[in-house]
Amino acid sequence: MATILCYGDSLTWGSIPNGGRYPKHLRWPNILNDLLGKHHQVINFGLPGRTTIWNDPFLEGRNGLSYLQAALETFGPVDILVLMLGTNDLKRHFNVGAFEAAKGVEKLIEKSRIPNPHGFPSPTLVIIAPPNILSPTGSMAESFSGAIEKSQHFHQYYQDIAAHNKCIFLNAAGVLQPSEVDGVHLDAQGNDTLAHALHEAIKDIIQS
């Protein structure tokens, strides 16, 4: 039995564009679990607003680096760690781009490989470059001002980080785009597409 920990933000948590949360069967980690089979465990540890390494002055507890070790110990031993973070890094008040988001992901990779007090082996890492941001609407339009162009560079920088650190890489922008409803979050089809793409990426390394 493999344990797959999905560590992400609202796109992993299951935010519905413009408000609400999808029922479990429509969130991509749950769909992935169905594809892998019930004898494996896929854990959804997404949190809306989570960043790679930044402290958000408006949202408490969103620094991904601060909580990763606790998550790995809580759910460990973790066989596969899926990291999909960086979208929130592009919010205007952080004033960073895709390059800095990728460097934040690299810090998460390093953190996941630090020996832990329980002797758990380091997980296999899957790095997902977040989908490109479309035209944010509603309450997110101001927060993500300038993020559309920045998000176009996720793929390049994340692929470099994944290759340098010997991680499996998946470019979400290559298989889907966010919902046009709000330009950031995934629709139901996007969740399904991402689950199937990730299944293809990891199925051969998971023992039945």
Rank of each mutant, 00 (worst) to 15 (best):
A2S: 11
A2Q: 10
C6G: 00
Y7W: 06
Y7R: 07
G8W: 03
L11E: 08
W13R: 04
N33I: 13
L36P: 07
L36C: 11
H40V: 02
V42Y: 08
I43F: 08
G46T: 03
L47N: 05
R50Q: 02
R50Y: 04
I53H: 14
W54V: 15
D56Q: 04
G61N: 14
R62N: 06
G64I: 00
L83G: 05
L85I: 03
L85D: 00
N88F: 03
L90G: 09
R92A: 11
F94L: 01
G97Y: 02
G104Q: 04
G104L: 06
S112K: 08
R113Y: 06
P117L: 13
P123T: 06
P123I: 07
T124H: 15
I127P: 10
I128S: 03
P130T: 14
S135L: 13
S139H: 13
F144G: 01
A147M: 01
A147D: 00
Q152G: 11
H153W: 04
Y157G: 12
I161A: 04
A162T: 07
H164V: 14
K166T: 10
K166R: 15
C167R: 04
I168W: 01
I168S: 02
F169A: 10
L170C: 11
V175K: 15
Q177P: 11
Q177W: 11
P178G: 02
V181R: 11
G183S: 01
D187G: 00
A188V: 01
N191I: 05
T193V: 13
L194R: 14
H196L: 06
L198R: 08
H199Q: 07
I202W: 03
Q207F: 14
S208N: 15
